[in-house]
């Protein structure tokens, strides 16, 4: 008889919190569902339609029902609400205290929700390739909060999303992005001639400029970090990097040689 049972404890796999290439979390499924629904609502119905209120209420109920995915859904609901409720105005970019307060509120909500979910969630990914795994994912969405962190951890958090010593960092987390974005929005240059030259509407020019600014900031920060980190790499990491860089250039030729060798070996065996 072929004894192909793997007797190894499976918790090595379950504890693998890193994202698997062929596995997605249950939250992702719900977020995709919610995203498509919201998109449908935005596209098919006019803002004054009463059915939108009903659908938003349904979203809210779902949010409360499945707390697992309410971070992204919360943001989506806020965005849909702002999109539908806010009248279009160019002066919206001004650094008004009202918009900053709303942004801070949104960030506080997102951070609190994310922290709560992180501290109560299991890092196990679900493979939704079959019905059974999907069912497990669904059941996991209604699980009890994870209490191991509080009981076996060094720092007892008592299930609180923001610890007593973390209020300052929480404040910094919310205020710094809002202030930075206000500054960037104020500094976004809008040359009156640019829309004419680029044959674009002013908001499109503004969007493109913002995108370029963000990309530049990301690239600069990434390069800055890479410079620091590169010198601290272990020799083995450096060797793997160099070898992979080299193989990127010559992999086609080497693969052909390798395949030919295998073909010759197989043919000589036969």
């Amino acid at each position: 008889m072929q004894d192909t049972t793997d007797h190894r404890p499976d918790h090595n796999i379950l504890l693998n919190g890193q994202k698997q290439p062929d596995s997605i979390t249950a939250a992702t499924v719900y977020i995709i569902f919610a995203g498509f629904s919201a998109l449908l609502v935005s596209m098919c119905f006019s803002p004054n339609d009463s059915i939108i209120t009903i659908l938003i209420a349904v979203f809210l109920m779902m949010t409360l029902g499945f707390r697992f995915w309410w971070v992204a859904l919360l943001l989506l609901m806020v965005q849909v609400g702002l999109f539908l409720a806010e009248p279009g105005s160019v002066s919206g970019y001004s650094n008004s205290p009202g918009s900053s307060l709303v942004s801070i509120g949104v960030l506080v909500l997102l951070i609190s929700c994310s922290r709560y979910l992180t501290l109560t969630s299991s890092p196990a990914p679900f493979r939704l390739s079959n019905r059974l795994s999907a069912r497990v994912a669904y059941l996991h969405a209604t699980r009890e909060p994870r209490i191991k962190f509080a009981k076996f951890g060094v720092v007892s958090r008592d299930d609180s999303t923001v610890g007593s010593g973390e209020l300052f960092t929480m404040l910094a987390r919310t205020v710094i992005p809002v202030v930075a974005i206000s500054g960037i929005l104020q500094l976004v240059p809008l040359d009156p001639d640019t829309p004419t030259i680029a044959r674009l509407i002013p908001p499109a020019v503004r969007t493109i400029t913002l995108g370029i600014i963000f990309l530049a900031i990301y690239v600069l920060a990434n390069s800055f970090l890479n410079i620091f980190i590169w010198r601290r790499h272990a020799p083995s990491e450096a060797r793997v990097f160099i070898r992979s860089e080299l193989s990127k250039w010559i992999h086609r030729e080497v693969s052909q040689v390798s395949r030919r060798r295998i073909r010759l070996r197989n043919s000589s065996r036969h």
Binding site: V78, Q79, L82, F83, E86, G88, S89, V90, S91, G92, Y93, S94, G98, S99, S100, V102, S103, V106, V178, I181, S182, L185, P203
Partner: peptide, 8 residues
Amino acid sequence: NKGLLAHS
């Protein structure tokens, strides 16, 4: 041109 949405 919805400033609040863009800001958030």
